[in-house]
Nucleic acid binder design. Structure first.
Lengths: 342, 342
DNA sequence: CCGAATTTTGAATACGTATTCAAAATAGAT
DNA sequence: ATCTATTTTGAATACGTATTCAAAATTCGG
């Protein structure tokens, strides 16, 4: 005896052909109702919709995309999804793309540079675009994408020669403003606990920060590159503070790094901000939590995602559009980890 | 003048037909090479692979799925992606599914119960299965999925009548063991700051916890339902501790809740664990951070995801398989937020 | 070297839709 | 009622692949 119940596992989903038959029209007309909604008489439209409802018909996305050459799918490749900043990014991307009918194919990567093999599957699935967060695309990957007519956009990174659009927070400007603020608060000796060296993020921030220091003729800047993790921040701060006690202020490459820095500092006996000031970057939600009233730079998250999606759509609709690089501003959020020094 | 550069936007991707022509064979043979790898002579295979490489040919997933009736796509609907526990879950799902050739379509939802309209798009795209984390499927949605032959699996939830597979941590057992541990540590008055009431998660834990208390003839248990957020935990603890100072221990529905609880408690002047003990649930990575040395229940994350994927594949390959509900154990992780009371 | 068994191959077809083109139906003007 | 302009319709086709079926090529045993 077969398994009971009404569900018949052999039954195929209803097709537009089935609907057409039930409604007494041609398949073409059914298609018109579900595609453009082009000219079709009210009478038949109603019949078709009724038939479709009865059969629980829904258009087949694969068949449709075969003919329209639009898959309505976008790939997203993320590093660091465990960082709350990027969890939020993902959520917002979905919130923006879903109403437009786009599906989001999620991919994880550990790599600083996304290579061809990592996008191969997305190519087979003919995504219309690829969003890459916190990482770069290799030259090979970029070339392949371009040749396949697939739009790609870097989120929170940019690269000069790469011929690839990007949306990011203007780290140069941000670092300048942060540095200015810190100097005006009376700080003179600095450390920068950053993310990986040679990424645009780190380079730009360093440049902006150093520029201000140079103008003010301040020389004390220790640079410690690492990764964007709590552990990295913790370790770096521990080393820094035990070997050199004369740091006024630590500028961190991300909030998560800053949390590690704060915990390490406190563990070594430093009070924040009395003994050492700390500044973060991102303004993640956690900073509302009491142990971490971190002064930080807020990235305009929502706007960055909005711009990215706009750019994406624009390039999808005009494959000849030249790549654009959009820098967004952000703002300093002052909480309680920077002291006023006399 | 048109935009310069070699990329020709009108160029279509190479098809198996193109490859066939270049290699001097039939389209069918090309297909055989890329599909099953079925019988095809070494000589021709080589020719075909060379031609394919030259044309940068890759099979078209949509066309393929049309004929094979396998889309190699799985949908995942997540609540609470901002909770680090679930960020980790997502990452692991991708890590498990990618090597199997499955693409993961990410969806976000705020809802406790996923309704039909939220899965409609996934149905159009013919995903082979849907994973739902931390939420339930409505009856309508479940019925629709079943009728469309789409597998669905609840992750970290379960429901009796729903005829839907589930993988979750055995909350009943966990709560029992936690309660036993707490009682043996000398605690007598308890609060349970939980997630939403009426979810299996909360119900099971409450049942297990209460059972132990009943056995030991302990009556003091205050129950405060909320959501799985820091803010909810913070607020609940604040209320609880200002109105009733005689709580030995607070059992929290998730680690994130517990972090809010701890911060609130400290703010009100309670030391942890000297004045009040706190226990969490999940064992998120953040617990390695110094301010939060939380004793908690570790969910066997990796194993849970592994089981979910196994179940998924099994049901995809045998649509008649009866739904299974798998409860996994986990273990108590003792850190430093529960005191030994005399 | 021959016949049988086996492997390899290509022509044809199906998957489910959108679109083109010409025919049919309708509306509109007189 | 007649003729024209417009709207609505269906037959046919294309999208790019996997698979079936029968024919062609190869291998094998003696």
């Amino acid at each position: 005896m077969k398994s009971a119940g009404k569900s018949n596992p052999e039954k195929r989903n209803a097709t537009s052909e089935d609907v057409a038959q039930l409604a007494g029209v041609s398949q073409a007309t059914v298609s018109r109702v579900f595609a453009g909604g082009a000219n079709v008489s009210e009478k038949k439209r109603k019949k078709i919709l009724d038939a479709a409802a009865e059969l629980e018909y829904k258009p087949n996305a694969q068949a449709r995309s075969l003919i329209t050459r639009k898959t309505m799918m976008v790939g997203i490749i993320m590093r660091n999804i465990k960082d709350p900043f990027y969890s939020a990014v993902l959520e917002i991307f979905h919130t923006r793309l879903a109403p437009l009918g786009y599906q989001l194919i999620f991919n994880n990567s550990e790599n600083e540079i996304i290579e061809e093999w990592e996008i191969a599957k997305l190519l087979e699935f003919n995504v219309e675009g690829i969003i890459v967060t916190d990482a770069l695309l290799s030259e090979g990957a970029t070339r392949k994408l371009k040749r396949s007519g697939i739009v790609s956009i870097l989120f929170n990174r940019h690269a000069e020669g790469l011929n690839c659009s990007a949306v990011y927070c203007d780290n140069y400007l941000a670092a300048q403003q942060i540095a200015t603020y810190l100097v005006e608060m009376g700080h003179r000796t600095f450390a920068f606990i950053s993310g990986p060296r040679n990424t645009s993020t780190t380079v730009d921030r360093l440049k902006g920060f150093q520029e201000v220091l140079r103008e003010r003729n301040i020389k004390e800047l220790t640079i410690i590159p690492g990764t964007y993790t709590y552990e990295s921040g913790f370790k770096s701060a521990q080393e820094l503070l035990t070997r050199n006690k004369k740091i006024d202020c630590i500028f961190c490459g991300s909030d998560i790094i800053a949390l590690g820095v704060m915990d390490a500092a406190r563990l070594v006996g430093f009070r924040i901000p009395e003994d050492v000031s700390v500044v973060g970057f991102d303004n993640i939600r956690m900073l509302g939590w009491t142990p971490y009233p971190l002064t930080t730079w807020e990235q305009p998250l929502e706007e960055m995602v909005t711009s990215t999606v706009e750019l994406l759509l624009k390039e999808i609709n005009d494959k000849n559009a030249a790549p654009r690089i959009i820098a967004m501003k952000g703002r300093l959020v002052i909480r309680n980890t920077v002291r006023k020094k006399k």
